[in-house]
Amino acid sequence: MSGEVRWLTEAEQETWRAYMTANVEFSAYIDRQMRRDSGMPMAYYEILVRLSEADGRCLRMSELARASLSSRSRLSHAVSALEKTGWVTRRPADGDRRGWVCELTDAGYAALAAAAPGHVTAVREKLFDVLTPEQLDALRDIGRAISAGLRQECDAAAAEGCEEEPC
């Protein structure tokens, strides 16, 4: 980073803090709801969702990490825990000695189906029901703009094999 720092204005600082507070509080609320009602953290639920949406209910571990916004090391730990519950299985990828595939089991699909109503209700009540349709449209557009603004850095980190944090 070169040049002079462009410090945040008072209004920008207020926006930044409101965004960060809402993001952290909402994420913590959803994770608590998932743990309380389904016995799984939100990160595990997201893995199960991504597998349930994939062809054959399975994905390569690298694809699952990207899709679930998880680092490879964090995903590997989560998948190990999910294997112990019988909700997923892991096996070598066909035709690739180094690759691994994670597959959602019937028990995992049942756990996901049982958790989904509570999760969707929580999201609806704490996000969709408190915003106007215009705010929801703006939130979607804002999320897409932020992600697009980060895409180049995320792609570069992935190409470098950065596994500590997802992008």
Score class of each variant (00 low, 15 high):
A22P: 10
A22N: 14
E25D: 14
E25V: 11
F26H: 08
F26V: 09
A28D: 15
Y29H: 13
Q33D: 15
M34D: 04
M34C: 12
M34N: 04
R35K: 09
D37Q: 07
D37L: 05
M42D: 02
A43V: 06
A43I: 02
Y45D: 12
E46N: 05
I47K: 00
I47Y: 01
I47S: 05
V49E: 15
V49S: 06
E53P: 07
E53R: 08
C58F: 08
R60K: 15
M61F: 00
M61S: 15
M61I: 14
M61V: 11
S62K: 03
S62P: 01
L64N: 08
A65C: 08
A65G: 11
S71E: 00
R72G: 04
S76H: 02
S76L: 03
S80Q: 08
S80I: 02
E83T: 06
E83V: 11
K84T: 10
T85F: 11
G86M: 02
G86R: 03
V88S: 09
A93D: 14
D94F: 05
D96A: 10
G99H: 05
W100Y: 12
D106S: 13
Y109T: 12
A110E: 15
A111I: 03
A111F: 07
L112V: 03
L112R: 04
A113R: 11
A114P: 10
A115F: 07
A116H: 14
P117D: 07
P117G: 09
H119C: 06
H119Q: 11
H119Y: 15
V120M: 13
V120P: 07
V123M: 12
R124Y: 07
R124K: 06
E125A: 12
E125I: 02
K126P: 05
L127I: 12
L127E: 08
L127A: 06
